[in-house]
Amino acid sequence: MELRIFQIIVPLIALFFIANVIYSFRKSQITITETIFGGLFWLATLIFALFPDFFSTQIAKIFGIESNVNAIIFFCIGLLFFNQFKMYLIIRKQEKNLTFLTRELALKNHAEENEV
């Protein structure tokens, strides 16, 4: 099997990120769910990069897309949407926390001002 240049670079990048996911989990920076999803995502990327023609043809067949290049584009768009949704949920959670902190601080400051 003749390896193209991206079939070497992409798996190396994927391996780096898998190591990073494991490291983050060991440092308790991410949850077990995030570790599993992150690990699986980069593992899939690694395998996909090693056998691009096989997987793109399979995806094209499954979804009834004629060209395997189109299949890759659709797949990537799907991933981007997933990532966008994930970001949206994170921002919402942060906004909620920020509001909670703002309210708590306002009431605490008011109580302290009244005590003085």
């Binding site: 920020l98 509001t99 703002t102 309210r103 601080l105 306002a106 009431l107 008011h110």
Partner: peptide
């Protein structure tokens, strides 16, 4: 008037909930 101050803008709903929480406590 007495003032209860949010240190950043969080919206009318957030301010209303602050009022409710104050009234409750």
């Amino acid at each position: 008037a007495t003032v209860i101050r949010h240190f950043i803008n969080r919206g009318a709903g957030a301010a209303t909930q602050t009022a409710i929480e104050y009234a409750r406590t």
